[in-house]
Design a protein around this nucleic acid. Structure first.
Length: 196
DNA sequence: TGAATGATGCGCT
DNA sequence: GCGCATCATTCAT
């Protein structure tokens, strides 16, 4: 055992201003111990949703049963169901009481590619995870995986340092309000970004 | 190559 | 009932 496994990102990583956390998530590896095997992917695109003043944030109209995880402590998964057929995965940020999260929009497959492909009609690794709905479908994440502790063993991010040379910051995608905020970050060198 | 659209279920007004 | 942090397909340019 001379090779050390990367440790998990600690809760303190998530317990910071969301706009600090979001760009640092690029290049990090997400690991999911799924029922079918271990899945891993390199994060290449995220969006920030921050607080009650952000009209695009689910928490902007107050706390409800659906968005309650965002009001809780940082370092938990927030997964919601949308458009009748898709799920989206977020990482809860900021201290308890301040609702905020980072949406995982796209990633590159690292481990468990065959398992991901079984859940999709698409076999191209570059476009298997290049969208929030596609990512959750390939990973098999649903509301059952909502509110998971990201410092536990089932779903977590690896604490490894990787420099992303070309971070692009743009407007968020797929929303009607709050579009003026430049809260989307992606790796400009990745082939798996959802949209340029 | 971009715009329009249907699929489809649920949370919230 | 309406609208939604989407995606794949269809149709127009």
């Amino acid at each position: 055992m001379n090779k050390k496994k990367p440790s998990k990102l600690p809760r303190s990583f998530y317990d910071r201003p969301t706009l600090e956390v979001a760009p640092e998530l690029l290049g990090k590896y997400i690991v999911y111990h799924s029922p079918d095997g271990i899945l891993s992917a390199r994060i290449v695109e995220v969006e920030a949703y921050i607080g009650t003043d952000d009209p695009a944030c689910h928490a902007s109209r107050g706390r409800t049963e659906r968005n309650s995880v965002m009001f809780g402590p940082p370092g938990y998964s927030y997964i919601y169901f949308i458009y009748g057929m898709y799920h989206c995965l977020n990482f809860v940020t900021e201290p308890e009481g301040k609702p905020a999260a980072v949406l995982l929009r796209a990633a590159e497959p690292v481990a468990g590619l065959d398992i991901m492909q079984q859940r999709s009609t698409n076999s191209n690794p570059d476009t298997l995870l290049n969208g929030p709905g596609k990512f959750c479908r390939a990973f098999g994440l649903t509301r059952s995986e909502n509110n998971l502790d990201l410092t536990a063993d089932r779903l977590y991010l690896e604490n490894r340092q990787e420099n992303v040379k070309n971070i692009v910051q743009t407007k968020r995608i797929g929303i009607r309000t709050g579009t003026e905020k430049l809260w989307r970050f992606y790796d400009g060198d990745s082939p798996s970004v959802s949209r340029r």
